[in-house]
Structures are given as C-alpha cells and as structure tokens.
Simulated scan of single mutants.
Amino acid sequence: MNYLIMGNSGSGKSTFARELQQVTEANLLPLDFLWHQTDYSEEAQSWFQAEQEKFIRANENWIMDGNYLGISDLRFQHADILILLKVPRLLSLFRVISRSIKRKINPASRPDMPKTFQEKFDREYLDFLIYIWQFPHKQVVELEKILREQSNELQVIILKSKKDKKVFLQKLAEQKRSKES
C-alpha cells in the first residue's frame, strides 16, 4: 500500500508519517528532508523529482510525507491512499512557531529536517506563516483540483484531530494483525 500524507505545515504530517510507518512497516520518504537539502534551484527541483521517482521504483510499499503540489503528479499516480490532515489554522501556526523555537534551541528536535537546514525569523519566515494562514483557501483548493483530474482511484481520508489519527492507526494495526493470523 502506498500512502501520501498531506496537510498544512504544523498539521502533524511528519509525526503521523513516522507513526504510520511503525504500523505498516512501509518505507518512508519525508519530502521536506529532501527538499531542504537543496539550494531550491531549478536543478534542485529536477533532482527532487528524480529522487521521488527512484523511491517509488525501489519500494513496493511506501509513505511520502509532504505537499509540493507543483510536482505531485507522479506521487498521485502511484499512491493508493491520500491522508489529508486538516487542523485549524491557528493550531498550525502555533505548532510551527513552537517547533521553530525548539529547533533553534535543539536542532535534533526535528528529525525530519536535514541538519544543514537553518530557519531564520525574517521576511521569508513571515511569508511562510502567511502561507500557513492561507493554506485552507489556496493549497486545499489546488489539491482538490488535482484530485478531480486524477485518473487513478485514489482513496482520500481526512483526519482532523489527534483522536482521528489514533483511531485510524488503531484500525490499521487491527487489520494488519487479522491478516497475519
């Protein structure tokens, strides 16, 4: 089974992806880890896309965590399930600001980011916070458009809370146990 995990920054994608990986034992590719190793150039975009292709070809069952809708076609073509994490914008903003402060103090607090990634509290960071605020009205609308245009039967699951995530993972673990017995 191949999973895409998408949602606003601060929605818990990376944490949920690691939890899903524990249940499914599928290989995980955290897209932020890849992307933030680059210089964000056009060459980097090509490399980023190629790395996703290699990962898909190399793994029978996988999880990819991250949005990057501009280059998502390949992921959507090969995915079975899209898990969309929808949390309130204020919660996303709070989580992002909190994790940024934690990472300044302890870079190891975000294992899903490369050690070389430096977050600065500057204009770019403010733009990022604006992106988070606008996510439900811009990115989700773009995602819905992409989903309408998909030819494969991608199952979409929307999880809105920690409880939803926990219930989903418990059901998945129960299904796995029943298949194994």
Results as ranks from 00 to 15, higher is better:
residue 36 H to E: 14
residue 131 Y to T: 02
residue 89 R to N: 07
residue 106 N to H: 08
residue 52 Q to K: 07
residue 164 D to F: 05
residue 102 K to I: 01
residue 104 K to S: 12
residue 136 P to E: 13
residue 56 I to R: 11
residue 87 V to K: 09
residue 95 R to E: 11
residue 157 I to S: 02
residue 109 S to H: 05
residue 30 P to G: 06
residue 55 F to W: 01
residue 142 E to N: 13
residue 17 A to R: 04
residue 153 E to L: 14
residue 149 E to I: 04
residue 8 N to Q: 08
residue 135 F to I: 12
residue 112 D to P: 00
residue 93 L to H: 07
residue 89 R to F: 05
residue 103 R to W: 10
residue 24 T to H: 02
residue 137 H to R: 14
residue 131 Y to E: 07
residue 169 L to Y: 01
residue 44 A to I: 05
residue 52 Q to P: 06
residue 63 I to K: 01
residue 123 R to W: 13
residue 138 K to E: 11
residue 73 D to S: 15
residue 72 S to P: 02
residue 94 F to S: 11
residue 33 F to I: 00
residue 92 S to R: 04
residue 120 K to S: 12
residue 82 L to G: 02
residue 7 G to S: 05
residue 154 L to C: 10
residue 144 E to M: 09
residue 95 R to V: 10
residue 80 D to I: 02
residue 155 Q to P: 01
residue 24 T to W: 07
residue 60 E to I: 03
residue 23 V to N: 02
residue 111 P to S: 10
residue 31 L to A: 02
residue 153 E to M: 15
residue 154 L to V: 13
residue 58 A to D: 08
residue 15 T to M: 08
residue 156 V to G: 04
residue 153 E to N: 15
residue 33 F to W: 12
residue 8 N to I: 11
residue 158 I to D: 00
residue 50 A to F: 01
residue 108 A to K: 15
residue 180 E to H: 11
residue 146 I to E: 05
residue 100 S to L: 08
residue 55 F to Y: 01
residue 127 D to E: 14
residue 111 P to M: 06
residue 6 M to C: 11
residue 78 H to N: 09
residue 126 L to R: 10
residue 158 I to A: 05
residue 137 H to K: 14
residue 8 N to K: 06
residue 26 A to L: 00
residue 98 S to L: 13
residue 23 V to G: 03
residue 174 E to D: 09
residue 134 Q to V: 09
residue 123 R to L: 15
